[in-house]
Design a protein around this nucleic acid. Sequence first.
DNA 1: CGCCGCTGTGTACAGGCGTACACATGTAAT
DNA 2: ATTACATGTGTACGCCTGTACACAGCGGCG
Lengths: 183, 183
Amino acid sequence: MPTRRHDPDRKARIIDAAIEVIAEHGVAGTTHRLIAVAADVPLGSLTYHFSSLEDLRAQAFRRHAQRMSVIYEAHFRGIETREELVEAVTDLIDGDAGAGAHDWAIAYELYLAALRDPALREITEAWMRTSRSVLERFVDPTTARGIDALIEGLVMHKTLSTGPVSRQDIRAIVDRTIGTSTP
Amino acid sequence: MPTRRHDPDRKARIIDAAIEVIAEHGVAGTTHRLIAVAADVPLGSLTYHFSSLEDLRAQAFRRHAQRMSVIYEAHFRGIETREELVEAVTDLIDGDAGAGAHDWAIAYELYLAALRDPALREITEAWMRTSRSVLERFVDPTTARGIDALIEGLVMHKTLSTGPVSRQDIRAIVDRTIGTSTP
DNA sequence: CGCCGCTGTGTACAGGCGTACACATGTAAT
DNA sequence: ATTACATGTGTACGCCTGTACACAGCGGCG
């Protein structure tokens, strides 16, 4: 049995560190050296485990998207009434779910990167498919797409605007966009 | 009277070139040299007219936001009935307005950059204020914010998704989000 | 007509980047 | 205990970046 010399979680920890660095410095400011420091591994370890920085970025984005999917799944589990759905979506936007501003920032980095790198499209599409299919358990596909878009747009606005958006307003908008669909 | 040696539009042309480069290569891939080539000016001309690359970027974003504001204003001018409003918003998302995928890409670059650079917030806030106040001529402020967020979210989804979003779907979502507000 | 001064530019520099690769290091087998 | 090898790392290289700055070219003044 071949024994590992060091931690076998190294690769995973590097990916986590990469996610962290992307969140803090953006894709533009994400370098091998920064990630290496964040993961507390030598510089050479990155090129050893990943064929290129592009490769590492893609894997980081993939893992983040998977985590977001899990959060979505968990957040909407057990929803039964329309009332609960409205509340759940509002929570998601208002930041009372598992996803904070940090996580959304990474998602936006991914979107923008995918706009130019077709290799990342597969990740964004998988993620959007998941998030929509979760919502489709409660509403029709068209409405699901609308809510999905609304969530991302509102989170963006909320994050950028200095004056906070009132929870009541969010709720009102969500309520109307969901319409009369039955859960 | 002091005569200019060359074109006095140089500075403006550099800013336009910067916008172009940002749209094509993203903020990350925007360099002095690329902009200089795009504007057909010598490299030194950039540091001569702009104190730093950051300064140039900010001015480029500012000009783009102003242009988007003008497009918004023009696009919603003359709208009278609720029906026309729904159609106008749908056109905006569907790309049949003055703004194409190119322009939206720059807007998203701006948003993401503003997320980390507080100096850019002033630009995003001015832009969001404008776009919302245009919509507030037709609907109440809360709804305006919702529509605004919906527009950006849907455009993003539409741009990233490979399967195109049907115009009919967009219209249906917009229609519901606008609700029963009177123009 | 010659000089001055200002507007504008080519070039060079220091720093940081991604990546390759020669080597150290610890393990398993003999 | 020694060898052979796979695993992992420190370092160095070439490239590209933002920016400074010494100079060139031209218009106005004496």
